[in-house]
Design a binder for these strands. Structure first.
Lengths: 157, 157
DNA sequence: TATTGTTATACTCTATAACTATA
DNA sequence: TATAGTTATAGAGTATAACAATA
């Protein structure tokens, strides 16, 4: 697409002030590029986006299935199959919690952790669009993003 | 999550310089929140993310199926079912190109356009994280994002 | 009785491969 | 022969609902 995308369209379909509309559109474009980059990096290590999300969430320690469902914002019933597939590939383990045997604690294996770290390290987004900015500009961007980060989630990923 | 997410983790799993690692992590968190917001807005209008992407792409005019596949970065075979479902709901029309009858031109209907515009207008991302920034800060953010936008895609959406 | 996780079902999105109809 | 789109198939992710085990 050309300039039209973020210069003309928002004015037509957006009642927001032009500056906000433009920032929204630009942020969306860069975010999409980031997500594409993430998916590609995950695919290079035979992981789906959701599998990578789960491994990222498990970096800080074992988590019950319920926690994974909340993190992924999906129904708990889906986690069963998701963990099944990851367990079968040796990316995670599933063990009943000794204090409440209803709960299953999911833990990333060494392979799981290494896989996620390879995905995250493999993001070219850091070298490409971010690399176009100077140190001073990256500091400015960091400070602006700190103001935009949601209080709770989506957290790691 | 707490500060740990973007203060400690990158240093451990990232060989990038700390500033780049931090910006990467922050940008990822905000992007995830944006995507969540987009999915929610689309769901409120009974659209999937991919259906909304397609409608966005069609705002600038009719497009052949092949173009939709490129925009969505998926195999052309998937577009058939995607367009089938959208056509059945009156969101798009599908007509053979008079100049090359192999090509099917997909056009957003009034309902399709209105649906996407409702999704885009319904994004609370503009009011929430973006609203936390002053006009001056949004101008700064805009200028930084302009430097990061990929030359071609992902364009509209 | 409430909660955690599971199963069953149906739908959307995805890649692969074989097919058709045009060119 | 090459290209645009389709069909068939298998797999991943999703929501809903009914269920088992545990609390």
């Amino acid at each position: 697409m050309t300039d039209v995308t973020y210069a003309e369209r928002p004015a037509r379909l957006d009642r927001r002030d032009p500056l906000t509309a433009q920032v929204l559109e630009l942020f969306w474009m860069v975010s999409q590029a980031f997500f594409d980059n993430y998916d590609e990096a995950a695919a290079r290590h035979d992981l789906t986006r959701q599998q990578a999300f789960i491994l990222a969430h498990l970096l800080s320690g074992p988590k019950p299935m319920r926690s994974l469902a909340e993190h992924l914002k999906c129904e708990p019933s889906n986690i069963t199959g998701l963990v099944d597939r990851m367990e079968a590939r040796g990316l995670v383990t599933r063990e009943p919690d000794p204090e409440d045997r209803r709960v299953k604690n999911i833990t990333a294996t060494d392979l799981g952790r290494a896989s996620f770290e390879a995905v995250w390290s493999g993001l070219t987004f850091a070298a490409e669009p971010l690399g176009a900015l100077s140190v001073r500009e990256r500091e400015t961007l960091r400070d602006l993003l700190l103001r935009m980060v949601p209080a709770d989630g989506p957290a790691d990923g």
